[in-house]
Design a protein around this nucleic acid. Structure first.
Lengths: 159, 159
DNA sequence: TATTGTTATACTCTATAACTATA
DNA sequence: TATAGTTATAGAGTATAACAATA
């Protein structure tokens, strides 16, 4: 009874502006994802970006440097500082000196940080599940493949 | 020589945690999209969210109400106020009274707003093109279909 | 009383720039 | 001089809550 769901002047339903539509859809999905995630993360007292950083730290074999994390997360180093500050305050990571160079800081995950990851893994999957509900398992595979191609096939950061 | 691209303790490369990975990939793509978009929109003096709102306004046949836009953009009404303020200040939309009810505000796009859309359409496509470069046309079709299924197959907002 | 939009406020996320301390 | 991380600052985006005007 209200909004036309097919834009009147933006893109035809055929294929001409497929690219532009994709951007819009990505934005919508991410917003939803963010909202669902925030809701689930709130009681654990961790923000989505902190959670992401924590997962990233855990994904390294050896404790990564701040610069490693910045590059990996595709943000500027300054952004990592804030996140590590928060995670350190809540006891989930620890800043440790690097034995070889006194100007690098290594980020170690603590037992508590690992516990956080464990307790949140199912919640994270539930959030993804909630978003992906309309798709079959096969379709999710295909989607995952396409997104991987996009992420991998792209330059780390335009310089 | 640095970051392992396949997480050591997060998801196996097979299929077990496909869902969780998808969320991560969506986030990365959207961040990139946002950055590219910001860069292109900056000289025109419009932010990504304002641009999105402007497109949404234009997509209606009749001038929408604030509440319509909030629902359509999937944000809280307060968020729309700020965006409309900015767009009105730059002369791209206009607040107009509703003839039937004195408490609703209708948002009309101005000629200048339309001109902005025209001048930005190609830039927007270029941004999407930059992101989608790794995919063939066929793959984009498939991706678009899957994303549409996700966006459409989801409840407007959990209540 | 319920709805529409606003003012007021606060927080997350990210960016640029300038500074410190190493190397 | 170049690198690693920080302090300082700013701005975009969104949220909740309280309120005004209208229905």
């Amino acid at each position: 009874m209200d909004a036309p769901d097919s834009p009147g002047s933006l893109g035809s339903p055929g294929s001409p502006d497929t690219d532009g539509m994709l951007a819009e859809q990505l934005l919508r999905l991410t917003r939803r994802l963010h909202r669902i995630q925030s809701r689930q993360l709130e009681p654990i007292d961790i923000t989505p970006a902190q959670f992401r950083l924590l997962r990233t730290v855990a994904s390294y074999d050896a404790a990564p440097r701040m610069a490693d994390l910045a590059r990996r997360l595709d943000v500027v180093p300054r952004a990592v500082t804030t996140l590590v500050d928060a995670l350190e305050a809540s006891g989930r990571v620890r800043r440790a000196p690097d034995p070889d160079s006194r100007r690098v800081v290594r980020i170690e995950i603590t037992d508590e940080g690992r516990a956080t990851l464990r307790s949140l893994r199912s919640a994270r999957r539930a959030a993804a599940e909630e978003i992906l509900a309309p798709l079959t398992a096969d379709q999710r595979e295909v989607l995952g493949g396409l997104l991987s191609a996009l992420v991998d096939g792209m330059p780390e950061r335009r310089c």
